[in-house]
Design a binder for these strands. Structure first.
Lengths: 239, 239
DNA sequence: TCTAGAAAACCTGCCATACAGGTTTGCCCT
DNA sequence: AGGGCAAACCTGTATGGCAGGTTTTCTAGA
């Protein structure tokens, strides 16, 4: 490489994006799965005739999308599915005013009425337990909004997981960062303790419907939950 | 910076991820929108007391997620919403066998029955025109699968756009890379010209339902389309 | 012969510097 | 006032270097 000619070869795009392509191709070609190790930066640098700088930026980009994991001293490894990147994309869309909160609620309603239904059909005993625990913890801690929010988020994520389709988990997770920022608004927009407890009660009922294995009821409760939430948000002026 | 002490300050995480946070914070704080320019690498480097290398890797990561656009000589700019990163995440999930094609079809069915419905309610004349054009082009070129596929993908994306919710577009787009790779399988699994034309006919009918403004019918046609597609895939052994 | 521990080899995170092109800015001349 | 050109600025890529982590290998002792 030090001796290599200026190269000129290959596709137009930048060296970094080519390198990203090469790395993903490597993963595919060798059928690597989560946890499997990739070549070292130096090795790739030699192999692809680019500087380590370029390889590093490629790795860095892949890590940003959570396709690989990087840790100092260790080789890069293939990552498990992770919604971190998607969550950042959605957050960015909201902050740059390309997406409204209401639009997110519409999508969530569409997705989560389905996950609620599927969860009622496919849940395991463990999952039911976790789902119910989160719902009850919401009521328990209802004086501490922060706690309620965490359990609320975990509740929805757990239902998605119980639906046994990782793509649903990915999407529900994608809204996490934004939800964390808009949740307090919705909470404050419920004018009384009674209204807040009412909202929490829907979660508890939903957990029960999933436990019972009643998909229709689970579906309806989830739909009602979102309808109520949107109403609350609109009342708070987040149109 | 050359004179700066080893720093030790700040959060645990890596310098790069801190820098990513700083940049997104900058975007938010200054309420930057698509097209607005960010500080130069050198400026950020000074401002945050890290080397240009770190800033570059941060920029590179943000560009990988398509939150910003990079072009040589120019300053980085805030990017428009783009499903490229999400599409890579999904593709990665499929290649590493963490997601199955059938699971994707289930999600698409959930999402796209909704977009079809909304499109029928909210479409503009222009959108109807584009949607119909793609459907008809599928029939026109049905001897050239490559062409059919392109119009098929564009058809679904255009419907999502007509639903007037960018999050739906994002999600439908997220499946594009994977679809491009699995589409031929579905196509070949239809055993005859007649079967293939039948599939295309659903698209044409769907375009019509959207034009007419019949949400229920649009919904049902989209549902049927996915049911048929899954059937075809299963027949081809992609269980 | 087997094992535990230490040394060597390897690897990533970060930095400084350098230079080849693109792009912007601003000034000067008309 | 307007147009064109040079200077200033900016990004893409490369090289070399060093501070820690991590893995592998070798050796000495049981």
């Amino acid at each position: 490489m030090s001796t290599a000619v200026p190269a000129k070869h290959s596709d137009a795009a930048s060296l970094v994006s080519n390198t990203i392509g090469e790395i993903t191709r490597h993963i595919r070609a060798h059928e690597l799965g989560p946890g499997d190790r990739l070549p070292s930066e130096a090795a790739l640098s030699r192999q692809l005739s680019v500087s380590r700088t370029v390889v590093r930026e490629a790795f860095s980009s892949l890590a940003a999308m959570r396709l690989i994991d990087l840790r100092v001293g260790r080789r890069a490894t293939v990552a498990e599915l992770d919604y971190g990147a998607m969550s950042l994309v959605i957050e960015h869309g909201v902050h740059t005013e390309q997406i409204t909160v209401q639009q997110i609620y519409d999508v969530r309603r569409t997705i989560e009425t389905r996950t609620a239904m599927l969860a009622a059909l496919r849940r395991t005993a463990d999952e039911v337990e976790r789902i119910r625990t989160h719902a009850l913890a919401m009521r328990e801690n209802f004086q501490r909004p922060e706690q309620v929010m965490e359990h609320d988020l975990a509740f929805h994520l757990e239902i998605a997981k119980a639906a046994k389709n990782p793509v649903f988990s990915l999407i529900v997770g994608a809204f996490e960062r934004v939800s964390r920022q808009t949740w307090p608004i919705g909470w404050r927009s419920r004018p009384s303790d009674a209204k807040q407890l009412e909202m929490i009660q829907i979660h508890i009922d939903l957990a029960e419907a999933i436990e019972t294995g009643d998909p229709q009821s689970a579906r309806d409760l989830m739909a009602r939950h979102f309808d109520e939430s949107v109403k609350a948000l609109l009342a708070a002026g987040i149109a």
